[in-house]
Nucleic acid binder design. Structure first.
Lengths: 214, 214
DNA sequence: GTACAGTGTGACCGATCAGTCATATGACTG
DNA sequence: CAGTCATATGACTGATCGGTCACACTGTAC
């Protein structure tokens, strides 16, 4: 956890530090991220950095935690009563919205899920909630007969999360959008082809979890 | 590409070097892997290392290429005439077999797919073939009516690969098997629970790609 | 004025890293 | 023997890194 000094900071300065952290870990995976570059970008001294944070990991964990919270706020956690297709589509759209709102933050979370991160984003408080929510949603769906019940809820939830979390990177790779470009151009994802990919993925997930036809 | 000197090496020494590389990049992601540790483990001097390889990346790329080739040999590339379920199950079993045969190599490939690798394993010659094979298999299945044709083959192939490549890490995380433990104990994956997870995943993939019931 | 507390600073430390190079070895040639 | 060539070596370079620390600045209390 960051030291109190960090929270005592004037808002402007604190958000400058957060922005610098975000830019750094959007451009580099955790181990490659440099405290020196962060302090230079934030316009603070290295000594100050270590008065704000316990260490590099502490700063990174705080950043990821904040971003996960923001991401979850966009997505909305409560188990909805809608059908699975609607829920999944909403998740995909939430990812899209979050990217449009905070492209750098989105890139950081992408990395946190794929690179070697000292912080397991699925264990970072809010996101553990996300996973439990997914498992709960699947279990509930199974009980109501809306979802097939011949697979373990854990496995089903994993598969859904696995596909959803990989989707952004897949479309980026497939359509040649780099994280930097995506960050610079908020509309880089406004393409019908990309919507098509997302729709296909959702359709396949829905079918994967649908109960067997009698 | 490694220099000729590497291929001139006596078999024993060359495989010592390869084994050291494998152990290093099984234990650390690429950026964390240390040439010093490799040379120490292989019992060669640093100077020799740089007479064998252009640089660290060259050695890593060579290792990954070799492992991908070995992995593909286990899996078997030709488009089989069997149903999708059989093909996918065979892929999962191939992964299992490869792990049993070469746990360290398996860990390296796991990392190459998930960590920040300078070598895109899906572009490393043999593995590009794997992807093309997957796309071809899906396209063929669509044409024959065995697979649903309302989704793009690229997207369907990606989803399948995404799930299959993530499966090992998922079961490792879920059942508390570390890469080191898996490497040390070849039978770490011989558990009925794990078979269950794999079977569930395959079942969901099959359903995801099945044509709509009339 | 002095004293103190909170905060800012950047030179510095020790470690690690990829990569180089002058030198050494030893086998083979004539 | 001398000469040549491929190979082996590890001290060294230059850079980066996370993290520390003695010191400076500022404002408040007395």
């Amino acid at each position: 956890m960051p030291h109190q000094t960090f929270f005592n900071l004037p808002d402007a300065k604190r958000s400058r530090v957060l922005a610098a952290l975000k830019a750094e870990f959007a451009a580099h995976p955790y181990t490659q991220g440099s405290v020196d570059r962060v302090t230079a970008a934030a316009g603070i001294s290295k000594g100050s950095f270590y008065q704000y944070f316990e260490d590099k990991r502490d700063a990174y964990a705080h950043l990821v935690g904040e971003l996960m919270a923001a991401r979850l706020q966009v997505a909305g956690t409560p188990v909805p009563q809608a059908g699975l297709a609607e829920v999944l589509t909403a998740q995909v759209h939430a990812s899209h919205d979050f990217h449009a709102r905070d492209p750098l933050g989105w890139a950081v979370l992408c990395r946190a899920f794929s690179d070697d991160s000292p912080v397991d984003p699925t264990a970072t408080g809010a996101a553990a909630t996300l996973h439990q929510w997914a498992v709960a949603a699947v279990t509930a769906g199974q009980r109501s007969g809306e979802l097939r019940d011949d697979v373990e809820p854990e496995t089903a939830a994993w598969l859904v999360e696995r596909v959803l979390t990989g989707l952004p990177q897949h479309v980026m790779g497939r359509f040649g959008v780099t994280p930097e470009a995506a960050a610079a151009d908020g509309s880089a994802f406004d393409r019908p082809q990309i919507d098509r990919v997302a729709a296909d993925a959702v359709a396949m997930l829905v079918r994967a979890l649908a109960p067997a036809e009698p």
